[in-house]
């Protein structure tokens, strides 16, 4: 939230628009602890996003469960979704989020279809390999 405010203005990187609807989003930032109660909804939102889509795991809890090794916390978003960038910290500074966004933009410029982590592309590529190989 504070990354979009005046001091760290995220709009100068072209990321001004935070859309509440997953159907219009390219990037999902999972910030905060992911609990087992919330996990099915996060997965549903991810599947509602149209491709191409990327995921940033923001914060120690989203990366790996953080300090909460308990009965109700998923130990990292990557247990249920493919993650492109991990931003560690508790909480990470806004500059870290901006760094992750800039790196993501650079990665998108250079990546090929095989580097992409969205699941449908992966399974499509696997099927192609099987039919070719």
């Amino acid at each position: 939230m504070v990354a979009s405010m005046a001091t760290w203005d995220i709009a100068r990187f072209g990321s001004e628009v935070f859309r509440p609807s997953p159907r219009q989003a390219d990037l999902m930032i999972v910030a905060g602890t992911l609990t087992k109660k919330m996990a099915p909804m996060v997965k549903r939102i991810y599947e509602q996003m149209p491709e191409p889509k990327w995921v940033i795991a923001y914060g120690a809890c989203a990366c790996s469960g953080g300090i909460f090794k308990t009965y109700s916390v998923v130990q990292g978003v990557d247990q249920i979704l493919p993650v492109d960038f991990y931003v560690p910290g508790c909480p990470p500074k806004p500059e870290a989020l901006l760094a992750a966004l800039v790196k993501l933009q650079k990665k998108i410029e250079k990546e090929s279809l095989a580097d992409r982590k969205d699941l449908r592309i992966q399974s499509h590529l696997e099927r192609e390999e099987e039919s070719h190989g």
Binding site: T33, T35, K37, M38, M41, F68, T70, Y71, S72, V73
Partner: peptide, 11 residues
């Protein structure tokens, strides 16, 4: 509620 229940009391 309960979507952010982390079990702090137990921990």
């Amino acid at each position: 509620i309960g979507h952010l229940h982390r079990g702090i009391e137990k921990l």
